[in-house]
């Protein structure tokens, strides 16, 4: 366990050192992701089964294996 703790700490330090220059890129990526997610949610609203309750209720399986 000790070895890993050490390794994790050192990788955290590296991440912190890099953080300032990476920050703008990261937030731009975040914006892009959010926009993509919005588009995706629009699409999901279109393809999601219309009567959710009935759809879920009718999905009954026999146990398997």
């Amino acid at each position: 366990m000790a070895e890993r703790e050490q390794k994790k700490r050192s990788s955290t330090t590296r991440a912190e050192e890099k953080a300032p220059e990476e920050a703008p890129a990261a937030s731009a990526t975040g914006e892009k992701l959010k926009a993509e997610l919005d588009d995706l949610l629009d699409e999901i609203d279109e393809v999601l089964e219309e009567n959710a309750e009935e759809f879920v209720r009718s999905y009954v399986q026999k146990g398997g294996e």
Binding site: V47, A52, E53, F55, V56
Partner: peptide, 26 residues
């Protein structure tokens, strides 16, 4: 408890390309 979340859960696994929610993710 909204049924749409259970539907979304199930539809994540739908193998039809036109319905699969997984297929819409990158």
């Amino acid at each position: 408890d909204d049924h749409r979340l259970a539907a979304l859960d199930l539809q994540y696994h739908d193998l039809r390309p036109e319905r699969s929610l997984f297929a819409r993710l990158d």
